[in-house]
């Protein structure tokens, strides 16, 4: 087949490896902001999931579909309303929530259409970020926040504590949290993260039980 060109070997993002481990075998999964379909490919090939994706960039969508993934061009801010309640076992939003216009509405929709919601995002409460702002008086630019303020797509950054507060506001049950430091070392804990995690984690994965 013309499209069956082998994908170049890619380094899998640490959070994607962790997220894939959270998804049960054969589950129905919606990956919002699926990019070039890397996570969906892992989930399909290694966990046999029935995966779907939404991606804003048409280039990303076309790349996904030509690799045999079920992906549509769409916008997390507007297109989640189409899906019926409880349509998916897992709804995943990896490294995307900070780029949405209305994170609260996106979260509400995800909790409606998924039995479990998995969200990963960079922690704006990480000590390096805090230090950057306090000591240099400049907007932080770090490995997980690699943009200057004038060009960043990240318009709704938050700390782990901020996100926990949104979950509380939405009445959502944080089942577990995986916090990762800059070396990629991950630690799983039950429930929401504490103050130490909010200081030391560079990024985090929240698992919400929406049943």
């Amino acid at each position: 087949m013309a499209a069956a060109m082998p994908s170049p070997p890619r380094a899998t993002r640490a959070d994607l490896v962790r997220i894939a481990e959270l998804v049960s075998h054969g589950a129905r999964v919606l990956d919002i902001g699926c990019g070039d379909g890397h996570l969906l490919e892992i989930l399909r090939d290694e966990r046999g999931v029935d995966g779907r994706g939404i991606e804003l960039s048409q280039t990303g969508v076309n790349a996904c579909v030509s690799r045999g993934l079920s992906v549509i061009q769409g916008d997390a801010d507007t297109d989640l309303a189409d899906y019926p309640d409880g349509a998916f076992d897992f709804v995943i939003l990896s490294q995307t929530i900070q780029a949405t216009q209305n994170p609260r509405e996106v979260m509400t929709q995800m909790m409606r259409i998924g039995r479990r919601v998995i969200v990963s995002f960079p922690n704006f409460g990480h000590w390096k970020v805090r230090a950057h702002l306090v000591l240099r008086g400049r907007m932080p630019v770090t490995s997980s926040l690699a943009y200057q303020w004038w060009e960043t797509p990240n318009i709704h950054l938050c700390t782990l504590a901020d996100f926990t507060a949104l979950c509380d506001l939405l009445g959502s049950d944080v089942e577990s949290t995986i916090v990762m430091d800059s070396s990629g070392t991950a630690r799983t804990q039950k429930g929401p993260p504490g103050w130490w995690a909010n200081l030391t984690a560079e990024q985090a994965i929240f698992v919400l039980d929406c049943q």
């Binding site: 048409q58 969508v61 579909v65 992906v71 549509i72 769409g74 189409d82 019926p84």
Partner: peptide, 18 residues
Amino acid sequence: IVHALNAVAANVSFVEIE
């Protein structure tokens, strides 16, 4: 068409070709 298919959680891909 895609919106309608999403509303029934159908397995759908959608591409717009330049």
